[in-house]
Design a protein around this nucleic acid. Structure first.
Lengths: 73, 73
DNA sequence: TCTATTTATAGCATATATGCTATAAGCAAT
DNA sequence: ATTGCTTATAGCATATATGCTATAAATAGA
């Protein structure tokens, strides 16, 4: 069984783009500051992949929001 | 770089056990109803692995909570 | 104690998340 | 139309999430 749900990943992608915009960061800013690769940030923001909760947590810390705010969509 | 953070995964594990207990489900109940393997549920609840957000979402739906509630710890 | 239930661990195979590098495509300004 | 910035895509290698099966350990009732 495959749990990747396109709609959920697209929703998450949109929420991340939104929060990153609020924080006025580029994908590269987020990548550099978080230590996550730029290609991975782009894949996440296009809903291409199913990130792990630790990746979410690192992104959240970089954006200075709580991890659960990234799932608030 | 590795983003797996032991403390975060342990915190998540504890939160999941807690919510599952509130819902009065066993690991096997959760596994069967969600379609996720029992071994995977056990690994998540012991903080051994770093689950994906789609796995979290499926678990949340099975527990009838919002995904962000699972990150509320 | 004994039994039944529940949780944890282990090994293996497969799918996929992630990093890296490079390239392309989009989008502002001018 | 071109330059510069930003986002998206692609291919490859590696690490790991997940399923499956079996077993062990812990826990709870009687």
């Amino acid at each position: 069984m495959n749990f990747r749900e396109e709609k959920f990943l697209k929703g998450f992608a949109k929420r991340l783009k939104e929060l990153r915009a609020i924080k006025k960061m580029t994908q590269e800013d987020l990548a550099y500051t978080s230590g996550i690769s730029l290609s991975q940030i782009a894949r996440i923001e296009t809903g291409k992949i199913n990130p792990t909760i630790c990746t979410i947590n690192v992104i959240a810390k970089t954006l200075k929001v709580h991890a659960k705010d990234l799932l608030d969509f």
